[in-house]
Amino acid sequence: MNQSRIIRIMIADDHPMMREGLRSTLEDERDMKVVAEVANGAEAIEHFGLSDPDVVLMDLQMPRVDGTQAIAAIREQDPQIPIVVLTTYPGDARVTRAMAVGATSYLLKTASSEEIIATIRAAFCGRRHVAPDVLQDVSAHQGMEGLTPRELSVLRLASQGMSNKEIGASLHIAEETVKTRMKSILSKLNAHDRTHAVTIAIHRGFLDT
């Protein structure tokens, strides 16, 4: 990519003030122009082809279609497009999912304006960047076994305060099966009890708040 030309940016975030702040920050830079602002993943997919950005700045938690789904769909349109995730949510599972579907960089919204701008320029030039605090979280859990979809379904219902019997009835499985899955969950997350497991799962990005 040619760094001498203007970097065209699409911002996808469901908070109007966040979009306004990002636009103001980015358009203060001589080499950057915001060509589209969208409020959800569905709009991001629709407007990507219309606005033809060089870099996409993508939140993960958005209505209608979330950021991870939008990243995957945009990547199908253009496998080379740099996508910078800018989100409130850390956690190794979220990072892994986002990078697996095509995100090239991952920042938290606590990042400074300078770091956001530098990351966009790096992405435009084909370089990846993951915020050091995010990378540390990923490294801390590297090699640890993740939760299966069935275990996640149990933990998600447990987070709603359901008992093992209620979870079993909801999932149409035996209560003993629920207990077996919960035992596996506690072991994988190194949790003391189900409440602790839910807390860890939210922090690591297996469950959304």
Rank of each mutant, 00 (worst) to 15 (best):
E166T: 09
D133R: 01
G143Q: 05
G143N: 06
S170Q: 13
P82R: 01
Q69R: 11
L171F: 05
A140Q: 09
I173V: 10
S163F: 05
Y89H: 14
G146Q: 07
R94S: 12
D133C: 08
M99Q: 06
Q142A: 15
Q80P: 00
E176V: 13
D137A: 08
R64Y: 05
T68K: 00
H192D: 12
I74R: 02
R127S: 11
V138H: 08
A72D: 14
D78C: 12
A73H: 02
A72I: 10
H172V: 00
D78M: 08
T119E: 03
I71S: 00
Q160A: 11
V134N: 01
T177M: 04
R64F: 06
G168N: 07
A103K: 03
P79F: 13
N164W: 02
A140C: 05
A98W: 00
A122M: 07
I74H: 05
G143M: 04
M99C: 02
F124T: 08
A111R: 06
E145H: 13
M182P: 01
T96V: 07
A169C: 06
Y89N: 12
A93M: 06
S159P: 02
A72H: 03
L86R: 00
I83H: 00
H192A: 13
D133I: 12
R128E: 09
Q136T: 08
T104Q: 02
A169E: 13
R156L: 07
K109F: 11
G161W: 00
L152R: 09
A118N: 11
R94G: 05
R181W: 04
T119F: 01
A174L: 04
Y89A: 14
D133M: 05
D66H: 05
H172F: 06
M162A: 13
L186N: 12
I173R: 15
I116T: 12
T148V: 06
G168R: 09
A191N: 08
S159W: 03
T104M: 00
T96N: 06
A131L: 09
E176C: 08
E145W: 03
R75A: 13
M182N: 09
Q142C: 10
E175F: 08
R128M: 07
R75Q: 13
L108R: 02
H192R: 14
L157K: 03
A103L: 02
S112C: 03
R181T: 14
A70M: 04
V65A: 10
P79W: 04
I116W: 02
A72E: 14
S184Q: 08
M144Q: 11
I116N: 04
V65T: 10
P149N: 14
V138A: 12
E114S: 15
A100L: 02
E151C: 05
I83C: 03
T119G: 07
A100S: 09
G126F: 03
Q160R: 03
D137V: 14
T177Q: 10
T104P: 00
